[in-house]
Design a protein around this nucleic acid. Structure first.
Lengths: 119, 119
DNA sequence: CTGTCATACTACGATAGACGTAGTACGTTT
DNA sequence: AAACGTACTACGTCTATCGTAGTATGACAG
């Protein structure tokens, strides 16, 4: 069974989170579920990875946090929401460019499906 | 300027090295130059990364080392050559499959070139 | 024959993202 | 009152990569 190793994704968890925050502010649990849904269950981010990414990215100025209740009337649980900043948008776009370059590099060393099973 | 960060490549240096060893046994300096050539200078592996990859992969049984001279007459410098094992081939092919999966996952969060600059 | 350069490494410590384990706390449902 | 899902925080460990440094050999130039 082929699984996604953490080393591969390393450096792209932040990108995934930012990509979700591009649409609208969100919070930990929701982002986690979105990543799972978007990837059709192929990738599930670990809780500790997610929350430490928040801390790091807020420190770096890529996101901003604010606390809000579940609904507008002040009912339900309080949550920490995150909003992407302009610096975060720049970082995200740069990561997208980096990804294209990285993909080109790695793929020069990768054998595609067609190449298997000919011996 | 977009550069390849080490975090992105993390976990794929081994794959690159194995991909080169698939063709024939080789040694540090040559592998380093091959990676640079194949990627047209886009990626240059660090010496320490390369040699620690050798140690790790030999320990894991993916490669085997042997010492040989530069030419058959026993002239020239002695070098440590590495040869891929069957376990190394399996590992490599598995990494190729993993790469396809990873690529699919990451790309769900990446904006392509067309999407830039429309605001 | 002496110095410089390219080659061919080894040693060692630092970094940082990811992860394992654990625990807290609140709101809703049964 | 208990159980479950949500919403976190704390803390230590792991490990691929990297920075810096140093060693040693052979080739080649002056």
């Amino acid at each position: 069974m082929v699984a996604i190793s953490s080393d591969v994704i390393r450096g792209y968890n932040d990108t995934m989170i930012l990509s979700i925050l591009l649409k609208e502010p969100s919070y930990g649990y929701q982002i986690s579920r979105e990543i799972k849904n978007i990837t059709e269950g192929k990738y599930v981010i670990k809780e500790t990875t997610l929350y430490s990414a928040f801390t790091r990215m807020e420190k770096n100025g890529y996101i901003e946090s604010f606390v809000a209740n579940q609904d507008l009337e002040g009912n339900g649980k309080k949550r920490t929401y995150y909003r992407i900043t302009n610096a975060g948008r720049d970082y995200y776009l740069n990561k997208c460019l980096e990804w294209e370059l990285t993909k080109d590099v790695v793929e020069k060393f990768i054998q595609k499906g067609e190449a298997y099973g000919n011996d």
